Computed example of a mutant assay.
Amino acid sequence: MNTNTLPTDELKKYGIINEDLSFSKKLNADDIQKFLQGYTIVADNDKDRATFQLTDNNTQLKVIFLERDKNLSEILKNSKDKIEYSQIEDVSNQKEAGFSIEKKAFIFDKETEKVVEFDFINNARELTAIIADKKNTEELNRYIAELLKLKSFLQDKIVQFPEMAKEITNDLNIVSKEFNTVAGISEKQNHSQKQEKSDIQLNVNDPDVYQDANRIKEEENQEQDEEIQKSRGFRR
């Protein structure tokens, strides 16, 4: 790894390093080490997001500008009440505007009291497992709707960008797999709820239940008649 040929002008431009070539105080030692090893630095500001990555043996800086559909402050606030969904569009290349869209889910972790961001593609299995574990029909249905939106988007992009069909198809397969998994979970939940409702109705309409109730009522009436007769006999 070569650190002597860093693109210092570009790094200064985006505030990653200072004029004296020291790294920004916003980055800790672990962040810097990972960055020099090819990891991506992410900078968020309301609706805007920028990612920075060193390439070509640390001689080039790859910068991608992204735009959210919602303000980050709004996302973080709303995610404390329910899972918040957002998408980020790559606006770096205007010629291919709308080609790259990342779908995110923001979930509040009660144990750490922090909001965790999950990507629909990179964190697909983990995201599905977390939502399924909540056993919340409303949240499950919302997740299904978001998966359908992303699935439709990817299908359209295969037609619009045939040269990227293989890459897009890989993402589409991931989304389709998660959708099938969640749809299966939803079907089981609906079946279980219908079965419980059916059992309740069966208990209410069960003739044995009515027969037992009528028998008990008749016995109570007979006892009441006997008490009345005894009462009359005593008065005589």
Results as ranks from 00 to 15, higher is better:
159 V>D: 07
96 E>N: 12
168 I>S: 02
61 L>E: 06
209 V>P: 01
126 E>G: 07
147 L>Y: 08
28 N>H: 08
82 K>P: 03
160 Q>A: 08
145 A>H: 13
175 V>N: 00
182 V>F: 01
151 K>C: 02
102 E>P: 13
226 E>R: 14
82 K>L: 02
151 K>D: 07
150 L>G: 01
25 K>G: 07
89 E>N: 06
189 Q>W: 13
85 Y>P: 07
178 E>G: 00
40 T>C: 02
64 I>H: 06
90 D>V: 09
51 T>L: 15
27 L>K: 09
89 E>P: 09
228 I>S: 04
118 F>G: 02
76 L>G: 07
212 D>A: 08
181 T>S: 03
218 E>L: 02
22 S>H: 12
93 N>C: 12
207 P>M: 00
215 R>N: 10
212 D>Q: 13
67 E>H: 06
148 L>D: 04
107 I>G: 00
135 K>T: 01
100 S>I: 15
110 K>W: 07
209 V>A: 01
3 T>L: 06
151 K>W: 05
184 G>K: 04
42 V>P: 03
83 I>T: 11
222 Q>K: 14
9 D>V: 12
121 I>K: 02
151 K>G: 03
50 A>T: 04
44 D>T: 14
235 R>Q: 14
15 G>N: 10
111 E>A: 11
16 I>W: 10
177 K>F: 04
209 V>I: 02
117 E>R: 01
167 E>Q: 15
198 S>Y: 13
149 K>H: 02
75 I>L: 14
146 E>P: 10
143 Y>Q: 04
144 I>R: 04
74 E>S: 01
134 K>S: 09
225 D>V: 13
33 Q>H: 03
132 A>M: 05
145 A>Y: 13
76 L>F: 07
161 F>D: 05
45 N>W: 09
130 I>F: 00
116 V>R: 04
3 T>A: 00
235 R>T: 07
92 S>Y: 11
116 V>G: 00
126 E>V: 11
18 N>P: 09
58 N>I: 10
15 G>F: 00
180 N>C: 00
49 R>W: 03
8 T>Q: 02
132 A>Y: 03
83 I>L: 03
49 R>N: 09
233 G>D: 15
37 Q>T: 13
151 K>T: 05
13 K>N: 00
116 V>C: 04
48 D>L: 14
182 V>A: 00
19 E>N: 04
